[in-house]
Design a protein around this nucleic acid. Sequence first.
DNA 1: ACTTTATTTCAATTATTCTTGTAATATTGA
DNA 2: TCAATATTACAAGAATAATTGAAATAAAGT
Lengths: 116, 116
Amino acid sequence: MSLEKETAVKLFEALASGVRLDIYRLLVRQGHEGMVAGQIAANMDLPANNVSFHLKGMSHAGLVTVAQEGRYQRYRANLALMQQLLAYLTDECCAGQPQQCPELALPCCAAPDCGE
Amino acid sequence: MSLEKETAVKLFEALASGVRLDIYRLLVRQGHEGMVAGQIAANMDLPANNVSFHLKGMSHAGLVTVAQEGRYQRYRANLALMQQLLAYLTDECCAGQPQQCPELALPCCAAPDCGE
DNA sequence: ACTTTATTTCAATTATTCTTGTAATATTGA
DNA sequence: TCAATATTACAAGAATAATTGAAATAAAGT
């Protein structure tokens, strides 16, 4: 159930900009409520079309989801995919030497199945 | 003790390329042993100077560390910083509505201090 | 000292991404 | 239907990043 590499790269690209990182964290803070595009743009203090450009990239990558509400577009952070991304990163960590993991304090290695 | 936004952006940029993502995951698998630049280049099947270019970016961002060993440069994944990056991402998640967190299955929210 | 090996640096080219402005689409309310 | 609002689409220029090749540095072995 691991992510495709291509998917992971797109997700990191989607996070690799100050604007988009701010947007994502804003949506994480909003939780399930999310925010509509105009609110996000107001919050970012950027032109609406620029924010829309970034939101498009983020939703295309899967980092956020979008739902239409009349003439509004409501965006939400896709936290489930973020979890998969983290798992992808730490997949097979310290392979063969699980005893290294605790000292490196990596969550994957603290798991009971680490090193399997 | 949260990361600076600029630091977080640089880390995501460092992960936002197929080549660098492969390198990072390779180093994660290697654990504390790490790998020297030439081994990494051989593993990536890319020109050494190209790999060096990417490694420089990654180490400048802090994603990996580098230690000189004679004429070799040994690179290791900086897992401690990765942990901080994850914390930065999920900081203040679902602020004010901690009851949303479990259903979103985000690790930060499963923590006992979620919503504080 | 000389040669080989490991790695980095620099410069040039190509490719990609960001921003801005303007126009288009589509929903709502009068 | 008409006007206003929310948002996206498109195009052009500016800014960044990636790749390649050639040269530089620096440690190790002879």
